[in-house]
Structure formats: structure tokens, C-alpha cells
Computed example of a mutant assay.
Amino acid sequence: MTTSSSGAVGVGIIGAGNISDQYLTHLSSFPDVRVIAIGDLLEDRAKAQAEKYGVPHAGGIELVLNDPDVDIIVNLTIPAVHVEVSLAIIAAGKHVWTEKPIGIDREESQRLLTAADAAGLRVGVAPDTVLGPGVQTAKRAIARGDIGRPLFASTSFQWQGPEIFHPNPAFLYAKGGGPLLDMGPYYVSALVHVFGPVASVAALGLQGSPTRKVQVGELAGQEFPVEIPSTLSVLTEFERGGQAQSLYSTDSPLKRHGIVEVNGTEGTIVIPDPNYFGGSITITRPLTDVSVREQEIIQVPQEGVLTGRGLGLLDMARSIRDGRPHIATGEFGYHVLDTLLSIEEAAATHSFVTVESTLGEVGSLPADFDPLAATL
């Protein structure tokens, strides 16, 4: 490991597909990190992204793994190879920031965490949207008692599916994808930030259609199989108290994204869409005068600097230099995966399933965390 002691932390990226634009846009605006290399199996794609964003080195995956100036590598590959690529990054002596989920099964994901721990390296796991001002401001409001004691949450993610915009969406309906494994990490991560670790889950699942068609791009009209449940209704129980009911569906003509509502003894807080970094936060108070039917709705001012993907990596980079824990840890990512796989198992067996993993206290970003400041 060749981590420098001062100046911007060197970052490499493996995977130059759709989501790399979001990472590159924001990472290039953070003074405390510097993107040095991009690699992809399709080297021309990596080189095009490097030219677009002014990254000095681009080519194959080995180029990124072997670059001595790269301290952290961002894994933007498809879920089925997340662990394989992350293990290669650890073997190269680099810290890992991986897109969600950390893997697609428990054993291989635990193997990654064990390898990283043995090597003295860190694993960070998306989504870092929940570290944005939206969820973090709401989390602080709940922690200071603005809604009293949190009792239960309701979340909903429903629409007709990513094939209407993604040029190659088949992997999103394969094992490791679907509305649960693709979008579930955002909602489960937000709930764990509020309520703490999950104790058990129950679920019902269905498959709206056994096949789907690509709607856009060069593959438009091409049919592909659906390998996972495309709708799941979920009940969640948390270790420290509290419950949640959640819907994940790509079978709905009606689009309803980003519904996260936490109900407490003294109010209900509406949290912004956990797939985004910010948004409106409101608290609705109970009626105190039953003769007045209009409820009090309070706008909660959003605290912090609004940026985008790469925020969690930045926290990890600063934490490495400071010698403190980062927030979006591999253990957090593993607990989210364990919860999601338990939901799949609950849907398959029509029973409650205990989530075996757990977590300690989940950290928060301070309100004055400034991604655009040069601190290193």
C-alpha cells in the first residue's frame, strides 16, 4: 500500500459504463481526491471517459490495479462480479469503494471482508446517497427527538422498470438485480441509519412477466429473461425496536419513487428519496385541537453541501488519512446485503427470516462536512 501522507488521495476507477459519469462528475470537483486512472474491459470506453474528464491514464483493468499512485479503486462493474473485482483490488494492495451491493451472496462477500481485514485495507460500499444532506439532516432531526420515539416507517419504490431508459438492462433482472437488489440498498440503508440493524424480515414476492424487452438503444426490441421477483412486499423488524413496511416493484404503470416516511410518537417525518443526495424534508404534527382539521406541517431546513456520488469515497479517503472509521463500511454493506437476501428467502418460504448479521452504532456525517474544501 503506497498511500501518500498529504495532498489529494489517488483514485482509480474500474468500469466505465453509465454510472461512471456520475462518479467522475463529482469526484473531479472534490479537492481531497484525484482520479488518476480508468480501466475497463472495453479499453476504448475507458479512454473516452478519461478524455472527457481529464483523467491522465486509461486502458485495461490491470493498468488501474498496477498504478502506484492509486490508493483507492472504485468498482463500478456489474453486481455478479463485484466481489471478484474487489478481491483483485485488495490483492493489488488498494482500498475498495464498490457500487452496491457488496456482492450477490453472503459467503463470497464475507470472503472479501476477511481478505481486506487481513491486508489492513478498507472496503466502502454504496449507496452514499444516504450520506447526503437529505437523509443526514432527517437523521439528525430524528436523533434530537423532533418526532418523539420512532415507531414505524413506510417506504415505496414502484414503476414499470429500467428497460425504458437503460440500453442493456438484462443484468438488472438477473440474480443480484431486480427492484430488491438494485434499489433496495437505498431504502434499507436509509432505514438502518434511522432505526439501526435489522432483526428479521417477512415478504411476499411475484413475477409480473417471465421476460422483458429492451425499449431503447441498439438492443431495442431484444427480449431477455426475468430471473428474480419483480415485485416484493416486505415487513421489517429492527433490533432496537421499530418496524417498516416496504414495496419494491417494477410491475407498476404508476411511478412512485422515493417514499420514505418515519412515524413517531410526536410526528411523522418525510425523508427525501434515498436514491438522491438531497430534497424536501417535512414533519407533520398530530392534531392538538380536534375542532381544527388542518395539520401542522413543518419544513426542515436541509443542512450541508449538496453534491453527488463519490461522497462516501471522499469520507473514506479523509478517514484513512485521519486514522478514523469511515461511515459506509464493508460491514454496513454486508448487513444490507444480508437483509436483502433474507427478504428473498422470506418471499420464497412465506415466513419470517432472521437476519444473522448485525452492526454497532451507525455513524453520521457532521452538518459542516464540506466535500468542496481542501482538507488534506
Score class of each variant (00 low, 15 high):
Thr284Ile: 13
Arg309Phe: 14
Gly308His: 06
Arg293Gln: 13
Leu311Thr: 04
Ser280Gln: 13
Ile283Thr: 05
Glu294Tyr: 09
Thr284His: 07
Thr284Val: 15
Gly279Gln: 03
Gln295Ala: 09
Gln302Phe: 01
Gln299Val: 14
Ile297Asp: 06
Ile281Met: 07
Leu311His: 03
Glu303Phe: 05
Gly304Tyr: 07
Leu287Gly: 01
Thr288Gln: 11
Arg309Asp: 08
Val292Thr: 06
Gln295Ile: 13
Thr284Phe: 09
Val305Ser: 01
Val305Ile: 15
Thr307Tyr: 13
Asp289Phe: 08
Gln299Arg: 10
Leu311Arg: 02
Glu303Asp: 12
Ile298Met: 09
Thr282Gly: 11
Glu296Arg: 01
Leu311Met: 06
Thr282Cys: 06
Val292Pro: 00
Gly304Thr: 06
Pro286Ala: 07
Gln295His: 11
Glu296Lys: 04
Thr307Trp: 12
Gly279Asp: 11
Ser280Asn: 09
Val305Leu: 11
Pro286Thr: 04
Gln295Asn: 06
Pro301Val: 12
Arg293Ala: 14
Thr288Phe: 10
Thr284Asn: 06
Ile281Gly: 06
Pro286Val: 10
Thr282Tyr: 11
Thr284Trp: 14
Val300Arg: 00
Val300Met: 03
Gly308Thr: 02
Ser291Ile: 10
Arg285Thr: 08
Val292Ile: 14
Ile281Cys: 02
Ser280Lys: 13
Leu287Arg: 07
Gln302His: 01
Ile297Gly: 00
Thr284Pro: 08
Leu306Tyr: 14
Glu296Ser: 00
Gln299Ile: 14
Ile283Trp: 11
Asp289Cys: 01
Gln302Tyr: 02
Val290His: 06
Ile297Asn: 02
Arg293Tyr: 13
Gly310Lys: 07
Thr282Phe: 13
Ile281Arg: 01
Leu287Asn: 00
Arg285Asn: 03
Arg309Asn: 13
Gln302Arg: 03
Gln295Lys: 11
Leu311Ala: 01
Ser280Ala: 15
Val305Tyr: 14
Asp289Lys: 00
Gln299Leu: 15
Ser291Gln: 07
Gly310Phe: 15
Gly304Gln: 04
Gly304Lys: 01
Gln302Gly: 02
Glu294Ser: 07
Ile298Asn: 05
Gly304Leu: 09
Ile298Lys: 03
Ser291Glu: 12
Arg293Asp: 12
Asp289Glu: 11
Glu296Val: 08
Asp289Thr: 05
Gly308Lys: 02
Val290Tyr: 13
Gly304Ala: 04
Glu296His: 01
Arg285Gly: 05
Leu311Glu: 04
Ser280Leu: 15
Val305Cys: 03
Leu311Val: 04
Ile297Ser: 05
Val300Ala: 06
Ile283Leu: 10
Pro286Arg: 05
Val300Tyr: 01
Gln299Tyr: 09
Asp289Met: 04
Glu303Thr: 06
Gln295Glu: 14
Glu296Gly: 00
Thr284Asp: 10
Pro301Cys: 09
Val292Trp: 07
Gln295Asp: 05
Glu303Met: 07
Thr282Lys: 12
Ser291Lys: 04
Leu287Ile: 15
Val292Ala: 06
Arg293Trp: 15
Glu296Phe: 01
Gly308Ala: 08
Gly279Thr: 05
Gly310Gln: 07
Ile297Glu: 12
Ser291Trp: 10
Ile283Met: 07
Gly279Pro: 00
Thr288Ala: 06
Gln295Phe: 14
Val300Leu: 05
Gly304Pro: 00
Arg285Val: 10
Thr307Lys: 05
